[in-house]
Simulated assay, not measured.
Amino acid sequence: MGLESIQFCGSPCGEIVQKTFVHPELAADEVAVKVTHSGLCGTDLHFATTDMVLGHEAIGIVHSIGSDVSAVKVGDRVGWGYPNWTCGKCEWCLRGEDNYCPNWRIYGLADLEQGGLSSMSVRKEQWLFKIPECMSSEDAAPLMCGGSTVWTPLVNHVKPYHRVGIVGIGGLGHLAIQFAAKMGVEVVVFSATESKRGEALQLGAKEFYLTQNIDDYSALGNTKQIDRLIICTSAKLNLGLFYPILNPQAMIFPLTASDGELTVPYFATVRNGLHISGSVIATRFMQKKALEFAARNGVHVIVERFPMTLDGVQAAMARLRDGKMRYRAVLSWNNNE
């Protein structure tokens, strides 16, 4: 007999609904995970009008395993994020860049009956990650998507001598500051909110610049030019504003999911050899390393806690939608954990 699960799902009208689902028997490569915690991400808002189980930053305890599973065992604490399966055969998988697999099964497009906002979820063994013993589940959950999103450009493109600008202190930005600072680079924060200055410096930033009502960023007083610029704000920005404070061949990484067009000054981009690079979540290898690095270096998530109930999910979604979350929501079946 299959396992029964309580699930919190989107609906066509955008209302969060509670359902009960009976999972089929496990396939050979599948793992049933009893969910304990789930982070909430801006992407969950995008799928709130889809009939699917929400949540893709989940932590839980392995309940049972398929016959071919060998990477985890019953009782292990594991986490998962956006993907649930990659083909392992395409060019990108063979190159170790499985986060770009064109055949992957990802949140919102496949396995709609599986998600983090539930009591039980069935996942493929392939994209499950053991959580370091010294890391709390509250810290681990947002690292499965938000953390891996900022980790990827930092670990792939930042050198210790770089000066890294981080735009926005929120769900992504407060993690990017910590990761970058603990990598030993010089971190510079740009924010439209003066009240976040102290927090940015406490998290590891060396400098903070207020951008509210500023049209000429060359007047910010930035002491040195920026080598890497990480865009963590959900607000649509005119990237050209930053051009006067970027070094030649600087790289810009827009990380938040958004619609619309990205426009930049054409000649200045060419003349200064600037790079604008998209970036998605970490590869499996880098997700594992991100967890290890965060545990070893004390990267902590600033969270607001909610119970894993219908009221709790609705409250968390509303707070996230209103832009009031500081900085990541984590829901748990035992809200005291």
Rank of each mutant, 00 (worst) to 15 (best):
I281G: 10
D44C: 07
K73Y: 01
Q126P: 02
K89M: 02
R105E: 10
S258Y: 10
N156P: 00
M135V: 09
V313S: 10
L320N: 11
V22M: 01
F8M: 13
G198N: 15
K196Q: 03
V189N: 02
S5R: 08
V187S: 07
G168N: 04
T283W: 04
I276W: 06
L262G: 13
M183G: 13
T269W: 06
I16A: 13
K89A: 10
A219W: 00
S119N: 03
A250E: 07
G115L: 10
Q202V: 05
S332E: 11
F293W: 14
H300I: 13
S195F: 01
E25G: 04
H162Y: 14
G312Q: 14
W80F: 12
Q202F: 06
G260K: 05
K159H: 15
D215S: 11
C90R: 05
L241F: 05
I16W: 07
W85H: 07
V78N: 10
V72A: 06
V187H: 08
F47E: 15
R284V: 13
G115T: 08
S234D: 06
D311N: 11
I302S: 06
F129R: 05
A318L: 13
K224D: 05
V164N: 15
V188E: 14
M52E: 15
T152R: 04
K236R: 14
S64N: 03
A295H: 04
G116Y: 10
Q287R: 12
N222C: 00
E113A: 04
S195Y: 01
K196Y: 01
R296D: 15
A141I: 00
S38T: 14
D215Y: 07
F285W: 07
G240R: 14
V33I: 15
I16Y: 11
L3G: 07
Q249I: 07
L45C: 14
A27W: 05
R326K: 09
G165C: 06
P83Y: 05
A140I: 07
S191L: 06
A329N: 03
L255T: 15
